[in-house]
Simulated assay, not measured.
Amino acid sequence: MIQSGAETIEPIAIKRQGLHPFDRKFIEWSAARRDLPFVLALHRATGWPIHVIALHVGRHHEVQTYYVMDDRGRVLAPNGIMGHGPFSFTWFQDIRASHSAKIRSMPDPGELPDPLEARNTLEIIPLPDIAEAAVVYSAFPEKALIADLGRGGILAGVESEVIAAALGLIRNRPFTDEAGKRLKPRVESDDLNVFTRKRCMAFSEALLARPDRAGLRGCILAEPEFFERSPLTAAGFHSAVFHPDGEIEDAWGKRTPSSAAQLFGMKRWVLSADAYASVRDDFIRSFDGTPGFYERRLSEATRLIEREWSR
């Protein structure tokens, strides 16, 4: 075992205000615009990826809000910086209130969708009593969003409002200091989320294959129980590359194990390099029934690293 630690994870509960909120007038101004100008200004200032919450009914979808999330799983929003669980639960409550005639009960908080498991297609969690309806949230492809500027799409005419939101960020210095900046490389949100969950093993293997990572070891980050049972039947794990300074490297770049543990909601965690080889082998064998699946994921990770890590 290399490292272990414990994190304070905010419980899922209604929480309307986080750290360093903006004033009520700004919050209301931003909410009327689905927080889009604020999110664009914040993304440009910090580099943290953009996400979206939407309500789907059949083929129709309505964006409820845009938001920004950092590498610790915290949502950066006008009402402050808070854990993703409380933020999501609050939005579920808001959506229930606005559709109270049709929704009589809420999903169990443990069933809240995971923003790290989506790419282009959205993860869907059904809401009771609405036929073919769902609340969804996912990574929002940043390239598509930014490219839409000035093309008559959702961003047409909002540039002046983005400037107003940027001025608001400047005035709330405690918020911007707490939000920090995302270091390079900056993998875009849709690819980032894919290789943070489920395909992280392919990503770590692709990183280890780089000549400039020669001599480094892979590592497994998981809750302690993971190492006490059969790895692939226990709770989830995250694979990464371990550096001599104690930090890890994954799709988010180089960062502390603590930040990754917070992102995955791990209250207690262990980081082990010794377990990496056996977990990797078990993981690859789990795809034996789908020939070429792991190899394709490895190839995707390799191309992404070559494109982003060389910048």
Rank of each mutant, 00 (worst) to 15 (best):
G150H: 00
A134R: 02
P291W: 05
G289L: 10
G85V: 08
D190N: 13
V162I: 15
H99F: 12
D245P: 11
S239C: 15
V270A: 05
V52Y: 00
D250P: 02
A260T: 15
V270K: 08
R255T: 11
L271A: 05
P21G: 10
L36K: 00
C200D: 13
P109E: 03
L304T: 02
R303P: 00
G168L: 04
R96L: 12
R199C: 06
S98Q: 15
G265Q: 06
V39Q: 02
A166E: 11
D245L: 08
R217L: 15
H56L: 09
V57K: 05
E111A: 14
T65A: 11
S100E: 11
A206T: 01
A260E: 06
E132L: 12
D191Y: 01
V75M: 04
I130L: 08
D288M: 10
D114K: 08
R34P: 04
M82S: 09
A97Y: 10
M69T: 13
L167T: 09
H99W: 15
F140E: 00
R229H: 15
G5D: 07
L127I: 14
A202L: 10
F89S: 01
F140L: 05
D250W: 02
L155Q: 03
F87L: 09
D35T: 12
G236Y: 06
G18S: 13
G110T: 15
R307K: 14
R217C: 12
T233R: 14
E159P: 00
A275G: 12
H243E: 11
R199Y: 13
A13W: 02
P211M: 07
L36G: 01
H43M: 05
E225V: 13
D281W: 07
I170D: 07
R74W: 06
H61T: 13
A144I: 00
S100F: 15
H51T: 06
N79I: 03
A202D: 04
K254H: 07
